[in-house]
Computed example of a mutant assay.
Amino acid sequence: MTTADRDRTALAGARLVLPGGVVEGDRISVEGDRIAGLGGASEPGDLDLTGYTVVPGFVDLHVHGGGGASYASGIAEEALRAARTHLEHGTTTTIASTVTGEIDEVARQAAVLSELVEDGILAGIHFEGPFISHNRCGAHRPDLLRDPDPTLVRKLVDAARGHARMVTLAPELPGGLDSVRMLADLGIIAAVGHTDSDYATTLEAIDAGATVATHLFNAMPAIAHRAPGPIVALLEDERVTVELINDGVHLHPSVLDLAYGTAGADRVALITDAMGAAGMGDGLYPLGPLQVEVKDGVARLVEGGSIAGSTLTLDVAFKRSVTVNRLSLNQAVESLCATPARLLGLADSIGSLETGKFADLVVVDSESYDLVAVMRRGRWIRGGDAFATVKPA
């Protein structure tokens, strides 16, 4: 067998979730790190995926860690372990999220994470904090919060060496709207989150260039009939992509359904907001400078008891979306793959099963929707040996 033969893989008999719809019993071929073709008759030696469904690799815009490791540690080995944990659960494109800390320390973390972006492990950096509201800080240390002065925001952006993808901030704070404008001018996503903003100020932030709602509904005022607040402003504006955490803890399923009914799958990005306990068991874990206890899979601060991120992985979010929320396969793929890929400007290479795009594939059981296998850039990460080959006729 030649090297070229080893770099070719074909999957036959699978249900494929394509941009135009779901195709049963089809074939997908891979050469090197790319999808080489879709369709055609199976051939001897193809992997037989009858009974399985293939979707694109998941894209996570907002994740703090996993596998017992945190991106906010500032340690490359920990960041690699977190990325690998989520990769094994189907997340083939990851944006690493930091948490509130001293500005110089977060800048140091960004420098470490930038090296992993340059190595192709991560797809960018998301700064969540310290430019957020004291009233809605959640699992962020209140004494380390700062107003979003454009000079300080720019310091973190510059520390990321061109790899900052998103900054979450509270636009009602001094400097908030100016920072949104600056980020928009730099081509960096300005996200409204951990905010006490009202409806009008949120609209100002959107007009200034904010395009993402950080974990919508969480860490922001609830909807009131005379004071709609940021949720309504973010949901109703077509320029905004809303993050949702579908773990059964952060949002009631009916609230998720409400968001989909208002925004549609092409404006929803399902995220994990996972901390270090993702892929692990109950216990004590660090989240930046804070301590988190995970009990029955729910992460809460040791002091105060606030929900502190999640232990979610995107394969679980995918399964919940189609089994609990009854989304179609195409809707689930839109929110887990295509929408975040478009938001990141990466839709020409990831986010859908199309010829010429990276061979980032997730294989699930067609009945249970449990994860079976993951491929990234044409190489099996897990489960590739689970399939028999098509026999000669």
Rank of each mutant, 00 (worst) to 15 (best):
I103N: 01
A96S: 13
A41P: 02
V55K: 07
L113A: 01
A111M: 12
L113Q: 00
E78S: 10
A76I: 09
A110N: 05
H64E: 15
V112Y: 04
G101K: 02
F58L: 10
G68Q: 10
R84V: 12
E31C: 13
L116A: 02
A76L: 11
G57K: 01
E102T: 01
G57V: 09
A110P: 04
E77P: 01
G37L: 06
Y71T: 05
D46V: 07
G120P: 06
L61W: 13
L80K: 09
L113I: 02
G68L: 05
L38H: 04
S29K: 07
I35N: 02
T53P: 10
P56H: 06
E77K: 09
H86I: 09
D48N: 09
E115T: 14
G90C: 08
D46H: 03
T91I: 11
D119F: 06
A69D: 08
A41V: 12
S29H: 01
D60T: 15
E105R: 10
T50S: 14
R108H: 14
V54E: 11
R108G: 08
D60Q: 09
T91P: 00
Y71C: 06
H89G: 03
D48Q: 08
A82C: 07
D119S: 14
L116F: 04
S29I: 01
A79S: 14
E118M: 13
D119N: 14
A79E: 10
H64L: 15
G120Y: 06
E102F: 02
Y71V: 02
G51M: 05
A82V: 11
H62I: 15
V54Y: 07
G120M: 06
A76V: 11
T93R: 02
A69Y: 07
T98W: 00
S114E: 09
I75E: 15
G68W: 06
G65M: 10
E102H: 08
L87Y: 06
Y52T: 14
T85N: 07
T98A: 06
V99M: 10
G57W: 01
L38T: 10
G101R: 00
I103E: 01
I103M: 06
E43Y: 13
V117S: 02
G51L: 08
D60I: 15
G51P: 12
A79G: 03
G67V: 13
Y52N: 12
T94F: 08
A72Q: 07
D60C: 14
A82R: 03
V99G: 04
E43K: 11
T91A: 10
G51Y: 11
S29M: 05
S73H: 07
V30T: 07
E77C: 13
A76K: 08
L80Y: 08
L113H: 01
G39Q: 04
T93G: 00
S73W: 12
T50Y: 11
